[in-house]
Amino acid sequence: MAAVLFGIAAFATTTRTWLNVQLPATAVQTPDLAVSGSDAATAVTAFAVVAITAGLAASIAGSVARWIVSVILVVSGIGVAAASWTVISDPAQGAAGAIGQAIGVSGAAGTVVTLTGMPWAALVSGVLIALTGVWLAVASRSWKSSRRYAPAPAAGTAPSAAPGAESMTPGAGSPDAGNNGEGPEPVDDIDSWDRLTRGDDPTNYR
């Protein structure tokens, strides 16, 4: 759940403004640009979606799959943090695409690019996503795997006789003896499913 929440947080930052760009007044009629995170750091959106998906998968994954999910979360978190840091360390490069669309070139003299708090929020979210991956790898070692039920004879019935035993001693040692050949009475719902899997009618035991 923590991985999902941090992934959503990282994704949410990309819908907000990361960079405010003030272009030279002589270059365009509207000199101010607002660059969203999805434009400034496209990789953050992709890594955030991967982290959300991996976080959801962790709840149903087996012991081996959880290790794979942990690695995916760590890589996704590092990817989010690295892409965010790239924009933080060089805002002008992050805004180059938006500036190019506005004035036809990626840079112009007098252009001022300022950061908002969203890149930092994405950076923190990325670090937290990576930490949840490490946390999952450590904590999930004590998680119990989902139970798998195998068909088992009903309580009070004898084990199946060896091949040919029924022909030698009719009615003796047979698990169905004493209930008119309708099979052992199911103990619970799982037993009923097992009978249905074998092709028996789970309701026909009275």
Rank of each mutant, 00 (worst) to 15 (best):
G100K: 15
P31F: 00
G62V: 15
A150Y: 14
D90P: 03
M168D: 09
V134A: 15
T111I: 12
G126E: 01
T111P: 07
V127A: 07
L128I: 08
W135P: 01
A10P: 06
P153N: 07
A57D: 10
W67Y: 14
L196H: 14
A58I: 13
A65K: 13
V75R: 04
G79F: 08
T111N: 08
A65Q: 15
I72Q: 04
Q93H: 13
A109D: 10
T157N: 00
V35Q: 01
E185C: 06
I129A: 02
I190T: 01
G173R: 00
A108S: 15
L196Y: 15
A139P: 05
G55F: 06
D176I: 12
W193G: 08
S140I: 13
R16K: 12
T197Q: 12
P202R: 10
G173T: 05
A2D: 12
A82Q: 11
M168E: 10
T114R: 01
T26M: 07
S125W: 02
R195G: 10
A102G: 08
G104Y: 13
T116L: 05
T157E: 00
V21N: 02
P24M: 11
W120F: 14
S192M: 15
T15L: 03
G156N: 14
G110H: 10
P163S: 12
A150E: 13
A61P: 06
S38Y: 07
A161L: 13
L115F: 07
V74N: 06
W18G: 00
P159K: 04
V138L: 03
T116N: 02
V113Y: 02
G133L: 02
A65M: 15
L73R: 03
G97L: 13
A41D: 04
A61T: 11
G62A: 11
G171Q: 11
I68Q: 03
R195Y: 13
P153H: 05
V50E: 03
W143C: 01
R147C: 06
T45Y: 04
L23C: 04
T45E: 10
S160R: 06
S167C: 03
A96W: 04
I129V: 12
E182R: 13
T116E: 02
Q101E: 15
W143I: 11
P151H: 11
T169L: 07
W18K: 00
